[in-house]
């Protein structure tokens, strides 16, 4: 009897495993899968896995301030909870002073070699150009009537720092 009970629960676990692995096996795009499973599958899609490399050619090659930013200040903007706060959502192994780094966006290790400067600027200003369903916040608004999270100089400083992550 105990054995049967054991088998019954084993069966159940196996069944739920099967249901879970097949709920998205047959299909299609990640976005489709996300909608279907309402997030459960996301746990399997490692955000740190293969980089989501942007194929769009659109980029913003000219610095918003007309001159290059400062690497040291850029790192401060990135860490500062009131400004960039990038580490709530991203991991960067080069930053060892912040313990609790998030996993909502992809890790930014090596980001400087994955994207050109102009592409990084585009991602910070409006990531939706590359990732249409992006939740990566738009950090800079040139129109002064809209609230901007960062100012132009802070964006340029950030880009200078991101470029060092090779």
């Amino acid at each position: 009897m105990a054995k049967m009970q054991g088998r019954a629960s084993l069966f159940l676990w196996a069944a739920s495993l099967v249901v879970f692995s097949f709920s998205c096996a047959v299909d299609v795009s990640a976005a489709e899968c996300k909608r279907k499973t309402a997030g459960y599958y996301l746990e399997y899609m490692n955000p740190d896995g293969p980089a989501r490399l942007a194929f769009s050619l659109q980029s913003l090659p000219t610095p918003l301030t007309g001159k290059p930013g400062d690497i040291v200040r850029g790192r401060e903007v990135l860490i500062d909870r009131q400004r960039g706060d990038c580490l709530s959502c991203h991991k960067i192994s080069a930053v060892t002073t912040v313990a609790d780094q998030g996993g909502i966006g992809p890790a930014l290790d090596g980001i400087g070699s994955r994207y050109s400067e102009g592409q990084l600027r585009q991602i910070l200003v409006d990531a939706k150009v590359y990732f249409p369903d992006a939740i990566m916040p738009p950090y800079y608004k040139s129109d002064s009537s809209e609230p901007s999270i960062l100012n132009a100089a802070e964006v340029e400083d950030l880009i200078a720092y991101l470029k060092t992550l090779k």
């Binding site: 996300k34 309402a38 997030g39 746990e43 313990a99 609790d100 998030g102 909502i104 916040p137 738009p138």
Partner: peptide
Amino acid sequence: GLLQLSCAQCHHERFGQKFGGDAL
């Protein structure tokens, strides 16, 4: 908010992922 995120984007679409030190 400034980040333009809805409750659903964190608690429905991304639970299990880490926001800073907390698992959503």
